[in-house]
Simulated assay, not measured.
Amino acid sequence: MRLEEESAVVRDAISAEYADLVVAVTELGSPTTLMVILAVLFWCGSRRRSALVISYGVAGLGFILALETLLGLPRPPESVYLTSIDVEGYGFPSGHAFASVVVYGGLVSAYDRLRDPVALLGAGALVVAVSLSRVVLGVHYLGDVVVGAILGVAFVTAMSRVSRGMPTVGFAVALALAIPAVYVTGAAAYAVLALGAAIGGLLTTGWIDRLPRLRSRLEGAVLVAVGITVIVALRIVETIVDVTPLLVALYAVLVAWIVFAPALVDRVGGTILGSPGADS
């Protein structure tokens, strides 16, 4: 079922000298990278559609963590790893493959690009690259990533139908999935992240339509720079907080920051320029 022999063929196709490149590719499916990508799209693109995909990602995180834990299948042995890499959790199905489909495929769906071959090809290429990178690194078998990707497609389809284009509904589903994930995983770090992010999204996404629009490309660049800086700062704070309720609150603040950053930058920018903010 996990295609161990086929996985060995994939691993043998890439030598260790390309390890850094493979690690860079696999990061395109990591929660932190996906969070930053979605945050930038939220700040500079369609906020409602981007927020919807953020809710997909948060809901998916809770779902896949609970499923992996319940199945309890181990990763491949460390002896086959391409390079030294820290990995946590179980091996089946692949969370990176699942998350890549949920986010990149979710963006194609939310932005109504399902009939656009370029968008489909781009999202598909990212999913395949991330999925194969996990096999090449040796942290998953080929069957793990195939099943993860298939589950991702089914999950995006289900979330699209249930949420009906409303981010608040998406975050409500995320909360419903995060609570059991925290219990099943024993409050694992990413399960706590899912819980806090779901709460933050549920409390803040009702304000999306009231947020000011960008007035210039310069303001957009400032928003992205300031926004990412605060995200990085919050992730640093995360490393020194070890109390679960405080971490839940921190992750809720993280999502709240993503939502409200445009209003803050607009207000500050208007003050500096001596003109009222766009939301005044």
Rank of each mutant, 00 (worst) to 15 (best):
G45K: 05
E5G: 04
G138H: 13
Y81W: 12
T32S: 08
V243M: 07
G201T: 09
P76A: 00
L234Y: 02
V40C: 01
A194S: 14
L70A: 12
E78P: 02
R164F: 06
G277A: 15
V182R: 06
A278G: 15
G45C: 03
V192M: 04
L71E: 04
S15F: 13
T83C: 01
A119S: 15
G220N: 08
A97M: 00
G57N: 11
R161H: 13
S94E: 01
A172I: 13
V268N: 07
F260H: 08
A13I: 11
G170M: 09
G269Y: 06
V146I: 15
L203F: 14
S280Y: 13
E88M: 12
R48P: 04
L67P: 14
Y183S: 13
I14L: 13
Y251P: 10
T271Y: 15
F98I: 03
G220P: 09
L126Y: 10
Y81N: 07
A263K: 13
W43H: 00
L114T: 15
S30K: 10
L250Q: 07
D86E: 14
V80P: 04
V139A: 00
T157K: 14
R210L: 14
V108R: 11
G105Q: 11
A51K: 01
T33Q: 12
E68H: 11
I228C: 07
L70E: 09
V156Q: 10
V58P: 13
S100H: 09
F42M: 02
E6L: 15
R11V: 01
A97E: 03
L107T: 09
A99E: 10
L38G: 00
V80A: 02
I14H: 07
A97R: 05
L38H: 02
E238L: 01
P31N: 05
L70D: 04
Y111H: 10
G196C: 00
D12M: 09
G124R: 12
A187M: 08
E5H: 12
A176G: 08
A178P: 12
A16R: 15
V241P: 02
R235N: 06
V268Y: 07
F260N: 03
L195H: 11
